[in-house]
Amino acid sequence: MSDIPNHTHDRWLSFRLGGQLYAAPLQEVSEVIRDGELTPVPGAARDLLGIRHLRGRIVPVLDGRRRLGLPEVHDGDEGEVRLVMLSHGPHLVGLRVDAIGDLVHTQGADMTPPPPGGTVRQDDPVHGVLPWQGGFVALLDVRRLCRLPLESEAA
């Protein structure tokens, strides 16, 4: 447990991407909305699908599959695709996911670091895994997932 960042989050919203469960801290999820019209951004990173207007704000929307290096083929129900609006400080970023899952409660759970074998990256958005419903759920760091600066860098 000592290798996991000290997060105070104990409730997480899970979602499915490429047959795997991921979760974001519930307190950093502002809302979940239906997928909709996006405006492409020329020259943007490959995982940026575009921008969307949301109640007067311009919100970048990331493709969760591309951001996490998963196959882009969606074999699920297109009607279940959602945008999870993630907020971190003043930032709001949308993440397209295949389907929304359950709330995951981590209080007292046995959270472990990500399994070895993957490429170790300083900006890896997966900061821990948790046994869940016969499998596991990968817990995401929203700041790293959305490539947001540290608060000290944003000043």
Results as ranks from 00 to 15, higher is better:
66 R>H: 10
54 L>V: 11
102 D>V: 08
104 V>C: 02
150 L>F: 15
19 G>S: 06
61 V>N: 10
26 L>S: 12
74 H>P: 06
68 L>W: 00
150 L>P: 10
34 R>K: 14
40 P>H: 12
101 G>R: 09
83 L>M: 09
104 V>Y: 05
27 Q>W: 10
15 F>T: 05
13 L>F: 00
57 R>Y: 12
131 P>F: 06
52 R>P: 09
50 G>R: 14
54 L>W: 11
130 L>S: 03
84 V>E: 01
39 T>A: 10
90 P>D: 14
147 R>M: 09
122 Q>K: 15
22 Y>P: 06
141 D>W: 00
33 I>K: 08
49 L>A: 08
152 S>F: 14
22 Y>V: 06
101 G>W: 00
41 V>H: 05
7 H>A: 13
1 M>W: 10
15 F>R: 01
1 M>F: 11
102 D>I: 03
80 E>C: 12
37 E>W: 15
100 I>E: 05
152 S>Y: 14
54 L>Q: 12
98 D>K: 00
98 D>A: 01
67 R>M: 03
31 E>N: 10
101 G>I: 05
12 W>H: 11
56 G>F: 05
138 A>R: 08
65 R>Q: 08
24 A>D: 04
77 D>R: 04
140 L>W: 03
141 D>Y: 00
3 D>S: 08
84 V>M: 02
100 I>Q: 06
129 V>G: 00
123 D>K: 01
47 D>W: 14
23 A>S: 05
131 P>W: 04
6 N>T: 13
80 E>F: 03
134 G>P: 02
104 V>E: 03
38 L>G: 01
55 R>A: 09
36 G>P: 01
141 D>I: 06
136 F>L: 12
96 R>L: 14
27 Q>L: 13
130 L>W: 10
21 L>D: 07
19 G>W: 11
62 L>W: 13
78 E>W: 15
43 G>I: 07
81 V>C: 11
92 L>E: 05
94 G>L: 01
77 D>H: 09
54 L>P: 10
105 H>W: 07
57 R>T: 11
95 L>G: 02
51 I>L: 12
11 R>G: 04
114 P>N: 11
53 H>G: 13
53 H>R: 15
107 Q>W: 13
77 D>I: 08
4 I>H: 06
25 P>N: 08
97 V>P: 01
114 P>Y: 02
71 P>Y: 09
117 G>S: 03
44 A>Y: 09
102 D>P: 03
155 A>P: 11
115 P>G: 12
7 H>W: 06
115 P>E: 05
147 R>P: 07
59 V>C: 03
140 L>V: 04
56 G>H: 05
68 L>F: 06
142 V>T: 10
106 T>M: 01
154 A>G: 05
111 M>W: 00
106 T>I: 02
38 L>D: 00
125 P>N: 09
136 F>C: 12
141 D>K: 06
3 D>R: 09
78 E>S: 14
111 M>Y: 01
134 G>I: 08
138 A>E: 04
147 R>Q: 15
54 L>C: 06
148 L>W: 02
147 R>F: 07
58 I>R: 00
56 G>R: 12
145 L>C: 08
25 P>M: 09
134 G>H: 07
26 L>K: 04
58 I>L: 12
91 H>M: 09
82 R>D: 08
76 G>V: 09
16 R>W: 13
98 D>W: 03
151 E>F: 15
28 E>V: 10
